[in-house]
Computed example of a mutant assay.
Amino acid sequence: MAHLPVHVPLAAFSRDQRIEGVHYGSLAATAPDGSLLFGAGDPATPFYPRSSLKPFQAVAMVLAGLDLPEHLLALAAASHSGGAAHRAGAVEILRRHGLGIDALRNTRDLPYGVAEREEWLRAGGAADRICQNCSGKHAAMVGTCTLNDWPLESYLDPGHPLQQLVARTVTALTGEEPAQWSTDGCGTPLPALSLTAMARGYGRMAGLAAGTEADDDVEAAAAVVARAMMRNPEMVAGEGRDVTALMRGLPGALAKDGFEGVQLIGLPDGRGVAVKISDGGDRARMPVAVRTLLSLGVDVSGVDGLASPPILGGGMVRGTLTALESAFPDHLSTEQNREDNP
């Protein structure tokens, strides 16, 4: 039988002062040097980071020569909502490399955003590769292949030169060899990594974007990708999306979500946060992540609305979804966290 992670209660939602449900999960908060400051649940067991891997994949593509305007590079690391700007951006990435939509091998889907999906359907649209939330990444991947004279048809194969470069880049940024590989929903190779490793990678990227001196080409490329995402948060997700709101409300933070309840955040001082909700519930990842930031002493007043979304009944607020205080340490400085977690 597969190993079961030892998840713990991280968040609960109430209705009229009665707990109606509990979300279990795990989290990791890392120091600028990549060590674990504190965690909950099972931060060491490898999991699939899903779309939170995209910034690392984009770093590999920059290393391979991908050169895009910042808003398009942000789209290459995005799980976008499928709005007009996102669709046009993916097409533009292809056009810049002499390619068309037929070069893409991602799955077909409707736009991810609710408003964007409704607009697309009203216009008579159907599931399409350019609408799928990973189309920016796939457009950048085939563009990178064109730049390097790598095969296009097989760009999703784990043995392809691009995917081999991604694998090396992931290890370089996280400091961890993947425990195994699978395939993501869009078709790209997907490594299993610990929450601690993922938090370490995001903290590293955010710190480099904030001015930490790069020691090598990987770190230089990581700074370029992180800055592009921070400066274009609407391309990383979309209007009304919590990841976009977090990067707007916390300047200098790098944020990316992933399917199955995954949330990653990097801070400009090099600290990182990784959250995995065990049931895959999307609604709990951001309240848990914001509460983790609070334990790190981060001023989260700019993202108050993400910390405890309301529970409605008959159109009225009848409760909230909040992180459970028992899962978190008090507000501690980095030095205090080090002392408590040697």
Rank of each mutant, 00 (worst) to 15 (best):
S326G: 06
V262L: 05
G280W: 05
G314M: 12
G315F: 06
L165Q: 12
E70K: 07
A78C: 09
G83S: 01
V290Y: 10
G125V: 02
R129V: 15
V290S: 06
G203Y: 07
D149Y: 04
V288W: 07
G319S: 03
L110S: 09
K54M: 00
L37H: 10
V62Q: 07
G82R: 02
G25K: 03
D340H: 14
P233C: 10
L324N: 00
S308C: 14
D215Q: 15
L195R: 01
Q132M: 11
L250K: 05
V290E: 02
H71Y: 13
A327I: 10
H86P: 15
D269S: 07
L53G: 07
L37N: 10
L250G: 02
H86W: 10
R227M: 03
P49W: 11
V218P: 06
G305R: 12
R122E: 14
F56S: 07
L121P: 14
G41A: 04
D33R: 08
L73M: 14
A139D: 04
V303H: 05
G280L: 06
L72V: 09
V298H: 01
P178N: 08
E116A: 06
L254D: 00
G319F: 04
P69E: 12
D184A: 03
A253R: 00
A197N: 06
E119V: 07
M1C: 13
A220V: 12
A274T: 05
V91G: 08
G125K: 03
L195D: 06
P189H: 05
V114W: 15
G125L: 01
A11Q: 05
T322K: 14
S182F: 01
P251L: 00
H7G: 11
S182D: 13
L37P: 07
V22S: 07
V142W: 00
G82L: 01
G113A: 07
R18G: 02
I93D: 04
R271E: 02
